[in-house]
Design a protein around this nucleic acid. Sequence first.
RNA 1: UCCUCAGUAGCUCAGUUGGUUAGAGCGGCGGACUGUUAAUCCGUAGGUCGUAGGUUCAAGUCCUACCUGAGGAGCCA
Length: 466
Amino acid sequence: MSGRLDEEVLVKGWVRFFRNNRFIVVNDGSTVNNIQAVADEKIINEKLIKDLAVGASVAVYGKLAASQGSGQSVEIVASKVEVIGTADPEKYPLQPKKHSLEFLREIAHLRFRTNIFGSITRVRHAMIFAVHDFFTKKGFVNIHTPIITGSDCEGAGEMFRVSTLDAANPPRNDDGTVDFSKDFFGRETNLTVSGQLEGELAAMALSDIYTFGPTFRAENSNTARHLAEFWMIEPEMAFYELKDNMDLAEEFLKYLIKYALDNCFDDLQFLSNRQQEEEKGKPQDQRSMELIEKLKFILENDFVRLTYTEAIEILENSKPNKQNKFQYPVKGFGTDLQSEHERYLVEKHFKRPVILTDYPKEIKAFYMKQNVDGKTVRAMDILFPGIGEIVGGSQREDNYEKLLNRMKELKLPVEDMWWYLDTRRFGSVPHSGFGLGFERLMLFVTGMGNIRDVIAFPRTPKNAEF
RNA sequence: UCCUCAGUAGCUCAGUUGGUUAGAGCGGCGGACUGUUAAUCCGUAGGUCGUAGGUUCAAGUCCUACCUGAGGAGCCA
């Protein structure tokens, strides 16, 4: 900017501060940094003073000059200030002061105008771009999997029904159940909980594909890590075994984080300051690492890889387990790992991201490749500090008989899944993939604590405002 | 869904063992101010104490239900 001194400039944006009837601080969303315009008495008048309220939209014409004040290096010496849209100060809810994140959630239509959501939104865009950039460079093909799905066995929890039937008076079968053959699609349909199964179909021709789309879970989850509508990235790779899958996932996460550091430094610095402020109230041992330091730490260290069985051993012999400090004690193979166990491994024992593999088949999905031990499947979960599970993936069962038998064991509607099974009948190959919850990545990269603050309009139980 | 905590002015909060007329800071409004940085200074208005019941001479305060939010858990990404 300093190289452009004396240039005529035009800035259009929204007033953040108006001080001393003279200093107009404007932000247009292009950066977290504001620009200050100085209006002298020749162009300022009573009407302008009245209209230049926080939140008003303005066009400022003037010359760029070195600032006489200390808070900024350059400023605009305004020759003309035009108020485009006023913002009644008696009604405009945003003030030039700190607001709680809870309050800002209630005014999600205006929270874009805060520094914090400006930064989050820009970082989010950078991450979206980096996802496509990473896969494009690797020769992956993006596919759009259906949002409305007819299969109800994707195995990832409760689904939202999609229907045009009269909810008050649906057509019924003789036994009283709803007759979905009369519904729009002639069958029961839901919003997708995963694009994986369709992704696998595409990978069986294009080799390396990925999806990046909205995903819906009707679980009644009330946590800072869950949304009913979220965005998920699901790559699926033919000829990849579990290790290749892990290598790709680790490389991918590091690429995204590096991209943020390289391209969003001002925003990350701002978000880091915000987090440090917030953490001042916390006791020393509960504070997390400074944001940028934390992101660099991820880049510089390999993720720890170990099997579920090895993890159980570590947990069984851990201090908190021996001292009965875990709410859920670890009792050998088969124990489902709880949040507290994952946190112990990631935050206390290894102090870095952990990839857990080869879980008992009973606690994992039907499509995962069975190991020769007959007990475990080729699953992998990547656990991040503070977030928990950020990636879940596996090598897929590519053997037709084994897959079919597993589906029958679990009493899945095999007939409805004929198309999925067909891939194992015709030219089946070993293949793998994983799912990355985009908002969970955003939590990690921005250092925010609640997933409702890294998506513009969060959908959660009892909340679909805006 | 379960456990815990909370809901008082536009925002952030205080409000004693139940006891007169409900408090502050910020913001708003009126005024002052030509180098301010969440500007400052003077003045001022602003409340169905989440909702509905109940206990009591008396409820912001106690009890019950519900609603909303937060933290934790479960489910998961």
